[in-house]
């Protein structure tokens, strides 16, 4: 299995003289998620064109990039969304092939996706939904299921992570929630499911500054030495709240640059254009219609 440095060599240095080789924080930490040369398409349109990424326990990664760069595709693909087809490459979770698992099996195993646009599900009680989801994860972990009372205790405690009003439990899943409430509900689910790999897709979008702080504080609270977090974002402002160990820049379906948190600041200052300079003409960002980014 190639190391993270080898993969970086392959991926970045090809096009850039400036290639930041960064230290692995805990080289001995368990590799939780390992993505190798991942290619994927939606319909007939190729979106991912060779993504390499390794996430170890205790790390926080951020993937940045403009609309259409493939970052949302990456997150949904990892969760098993049926709209995406993997055409090449591998994804291993704790050494096991992740791609053969059904979406619910991934969730039960500990891979979590916080959605950019959580859907509303009228009629289905939020509390009931959270309980069924939590118990299915617990069964997979070999922990005993919680009855309604024990679960209510747990959920009330976890509500504090995102400072959510218990009244939200009585409503239908996400129905009529504001943007901020939906995102808090996502982080609440993360708090209940205790994933080892948490992918948070544009968790900052649609949040005002107060909500952003609450959600970020929740994520920071949930980050442990045993799990890892992959933040997918457009903007620096989320990274002001949650400090990443690594920042990756995606364009045209590949990770073109990897660096520390300074890379995000540089992007903020210089925009994305300078990243594109290294692209071959056929890979120009424009050739991928943002509309294909399935949301």
């Amino acid at each position: 299995m190639p190391t993270i440095l080898e993969s970086l060599d392959l991926d970045c240095s090809l096009f850039h003289s400036y290639s930041l080789l960064f230290p692995v924080i805990r080289p001995d930490a368990t590799i939780l998620l390992e993505i190798r040369n991942l290619h994927a398409k939606v319909g007939d349109q190729p979106i991912l064109k060779g993504v390499d990424l390794t996430l170890r326990a205790g790390e926080i990664h951020a993937v940045m990039g403009r609309n259409g760069s493939g970052k949302s595709t990456l997150s949904k693909l990892l969760a098993g969304h049926p709209a995406y087809t993997v055409t090449a490459g591998t994804v291993h979770y704790k050494g096991e092939d992740l791609l053969t698992l059904a979406p619910e099996e991934r969730a039960r195993a500990g891979v979590f996706l916080g959605f950019q646009y959580p859907v509303e599900i009228p009629g289905v009680s939020n509390l009931e939904f959270l309980r069924v989801a939590t118990n299915s994860r617990r069964v997979a972990q070999g922990v005993e299921e919680l009855d309604t009372f024990a679960f209510e205790d747990l959920v009330r405690e976890r509500l504090k992570v995102v400072q959510m009003d218990p009244a939200f439990l009585e409503r239908s899943v996400n129905e009529g929630f504001s943007g901020g409430e939906k995102k808090r509900n996502e982080i609440l689910q993360m708090a209940l499911l205790e994933p080892l790999v948490a992918i948070l897709d544009e968790t900052d979008s649609g949040l005002d500054i107060d909500a952003l702080r609450i959600v970020s504080a929740g994520v920071n609270q949930l980050a442990t030495p045993d799990n890892c977090i992959l933040l997918i974002t457009h903007y620096q402002r989320l990274l002001d709240e949650i400090t990443p160990d690594f920042v990756h820049v995606m364009a045209a379906g590949r990770i073109l640059r990897t660096g520390g948190k300074e890379l995000a600041l540089e992007l903020e200052r210089r925009g994305y254009d300078w990243i594109d300079e290294g692209l071959e003409s056929s890979d120009q960002v424009d050739s991928i219609a943002p509309a294909l980014e399935v949301v």
Binding site: P82, A107, L113, A133, L193
Partner: peptide
């Protein structure tokens, strides 16, 4: 399909 995927992605069969 989005609703189904959402529930499945939370571990519900």
């Amino acid at each position: 399909e989005d609703q189904l995927f959402y529930l499945q992605s939370r571990g519900i069969g």
